[in-house]
């Protein structure tokens, strides 16, 4: 065959495609199990990192095995529907918020993780998801199931916010610390009068520290997205939390 003939070009490209496909497919399928375990551990670590501030937890510095064993021993997952009823037969860790949000609103299901500390304290970790400036943002908020739902910490993630500005919701630990509140004033999801107030990222600085945290300068749109996500996302879990309290 001539090196410049069409037949040769076709033969060459096809052979090459087949070889490449076989190599990559083989590699992908042989590594698939490791990839899934890694991804699961990574997600678990992120969920637990919302407790970082609550009890000096430092989930992000723990090894994968340790996180997996904490999850096994101390975390209990529950899946709920929009009415706040528990759904049987579904594992909470397998519920993906990005898939749930594509469903019709009434069909969505949400994971709740109950963490029991060695000292016997109970925290509920709630998953939320919303929109930032450029793309999706998400987070986990750890609360205590008391009268006013005291917030003990939060962790956030994002897909494509601007580094140094919107991305600070994930990177800026000082900002995140606000969600743990101080001894004197904790953030609470319910107001004094017993109405749901959600949480708010307040531009220009928090005024009412029972539900507001300071905004990040230069990241107004992302912060508004976080506010919306917190207010709407956390409200979904309230019927469930109220029902198990009684």
């Amino acid at each position: 065959m001539q090196r410049d003939s069409t037949n040769y070009v076709l033969f060459f490209t096809m052979t090459m495609t087949v070889i490449v496909a076989v190599v990559l497919a083989g590699m992908y399928s042989s590594l698939k199990d490791i990839h899934t375990t890694n991804e699961q551990n990574y997600n678990k670590k992120q969920i637990l990192s919302s407790l970082d501030l609550a009890e000096n937890f430092k989930a992000s510095e723990k090894a994968d095995d340790e996180v997996a064993s904490i999850f096994e021993k101390q975390v209990e997952g529950v899946v709920i529907n929009t009415a706040g009823e528990t759904v049987e037969g579904r594992v909470a860790a397998d519920v993906k918020m990005e898939k749930e949000e594509k469903k019709a609103e009434a069909d969505r299901q949400y994971p709740v993780f109950k963490y029991k500390s060695d000292a016997g304290k109970e925290y509920y970790i709630l998953s939320i998801r919303g929109n930032g400036l450029w793309d999706k943002i998400w987070g986990w908020v750890a609360i205590q199931n008391d009268e006013r739902k005291t917030v003990v910490g939060a962790a956030f993630g994002h897909k494509g916010e601007t580094p140094g500005l919107g991305a600070e919701i994930k990177d800026n630990k000082t900002w995140q610390k606000q969600f743990a509140g101080s001894e004197a004033s904790k953030l609470m999801l319910y107001s004094d009068a017993g109405t749901y107030q959600g949480l708010m990222v307040k531009k220009g600085g928090a005024q009412d520290k029972s539900y507001q945290v300071d905004g990040i300068s230069g990241a107004t749109v992302t912060c508004d997205g976080v506010t919306e996500m917190l207010e709407r996302g956390l409200a979904i879990y309230m019927p469930y939390l109220d029902s198990i309290k009684k």
């Binding site: 060459f12 490209t13 490449v20 190599v23 590699m27 890694n38």
Partner: peptide, 29 residues
Amino acid sequence: PKQVRMIVQLVVIATLVTIVELTLKAVNF
């Protein structure tokens, strides 16, 4: 073949990069 030289180069690069990506995903997530 001279006509598809660039495409061949890209396929080789892309394959190697995918190998790196899959390996890294398994080694350090």
